[in-house]
Simulated assay, not measured.
Amino acid sequence: MKITTKRLKMLPVTENDWPLFVRLYSDPGVTALCFDQPSDAELKAKFEARLHPWKPNSDFWLCLVIFDNISGEAVGITGFCMQDGIAEVGYLLLPEFHGKQYGTESLAALLNWAVTNHGITHYRAVVTAGNVASERVLIKCGFHLDQIVPDAYEIGGTRYADHIYICTRNEDNS
């Protein structure tokens, strides 16, 4: 499995991507408005769960590493997990790649691939209030804010609202 765009390619995560995964889940520039840093055991379990080969009926995350086509550098991860016919999307980018539109480019390509290859048409994303950059990525990819859940999530001892975004796509508007 390989998804490509003009500037990026996305490939399934492998055991060799452990250092990237550790950095994404421990760098405050990535995690500040996403989650608290997981314990070593939690992180290892998350990573191992993402190594399984994904199929449309899987109940675990499809996890793809995003690479820059020119440099070959890993810039982050993207993917989704199916729940009741809805794909919940997620993405994390290393701080040095923020602001380069890689989040939007990779998510748009992932959605197009999912619609075209697997007929997945319903998507959801949960964003912590204040994570404006992630909200912009979702809006650019056709999502709209559906619901705000006050005090839904705690990061660093502070309660935040969850912003729940949804998107419906088909092959005509992907």
Rank of each mutant, 00 (worst) to 15 (best):
K2C: 13
T4R: 05
T4S: 11
T5F: 13
T5K: 10
R7D: 07
V13N: 00
T14W: 12
E15I: 06
N16M: 00
W18I: 12
W18S: 08
L20V: 10
L24T: 02
S26R: 15
D27K: 08
D27E: 06
G29R: 13
A32H: 12
A32L: 07
C34W: 11
Q37G: 00
S39V: 00
E42G: 02
L43V: 11
K46V: 02
R50T: 03
P56D: 08
N57K: 10
D59L: 08
F60K: 05
W61L: 01
C63N: 03
V65I: 07
V65K: 03
V65C: 02
F67T: 08
F67C: 15
I70K: 07
G72L: 03
I77L: 13
G79M: 10
F80M: 10
C81R: 14
M82S: 14
D84C: 00
G85R: 13
G85F: 08
G90W: 06
L92Y: 07
L93P: 04
P95Y: 13
E96T: 11
E96D: 15
E96Q: 12
F97K: 01
G99L: 02
Q101P: 11
Q101G: 09
G103A: 12
G103I: 11
T104R: 15
T104Q: 07
T104I: 15
E105I: 00
A108W: 09
A109H: 04
W113I: 00
T116Y: 06
T116P: 02
G119R: 10
Y123D: 00
V127P: 08
T128L: 15
T128M: 15
G130E: 10
G130D: 14
N131I: 05
V132A: 14
V132H: 11
I139P: 13
C141D: 12
G142T: 06
G142W: 04
F143A: 07
F143L: 06
E154L: 05
E154Q: 15
I155K: 04
G156F: 04
G157I: 05
Y160T: 09
Y160C: 12
I166Y: 09
C167P: 00
N170T: 10
